[in-house]
């Protein structure tokens, strides 16, 4: 029991820390990567909450698809910025 509680405490700390870093990270790409990490940690949290359905969806959507969307948007925004700088 104490081992699982210790794991839950560790996971909770990691969740709050990654959420905190998502907001406070200096660089935008760091924030996006921290958000993806947060999504993966959420998948673990859903497993601990005995919600395998949500864990499956979170792994595929929350961490996978949202991550791809965010990274793609980040790339597009950055490309626009360098194009502007070149002029």
């Amino acid at each position: 029991m104490s081992a699982t509680l210790a794991f839950d405490l560790l996971l909770s700390t990691a969740l709050v820390w990654s959420a905190w870093r998502t907001i406070t990270a200096n660089r935008l790409d760091q924030a996006v990567v921290m958000f993806i990490v947060f999504g993966l940690l959420m998948t673990l949290a859903w497993c601990r909450l005995r919600a395998p359905d949500i864990a499956l969806a979170e792994a595929a959507i929350g961490a996978g698809l949202t991550g791809a969307l965010l990274l793609d948007a980040l790339g597009a925004l950055r490309k626009g910025k360098t194009a502007r700088r070149r002029q």
């Binding site: 395998p52 359905d53 499956l56 969806a57 595929a60 959507i61 996978g64 698809l65 791809a68």
Partner: peptide
């Protein structure tokens, strides 16, 4: 499989759709 398994164990249309969408994104990338 996820679509089929949804009737009796964790899985279903959402997870199956998300996995197929991820495959399409991978193909695009």
């Amino acid at each position: 499989y996820l679509l089929w398994a949804g009737a009796f164990r964790p899985g279903g249309a959402f997870q199956a759709g998300a996995v197929l969408a991820a495959a399409m994104v991978l193909l695009h990338l």
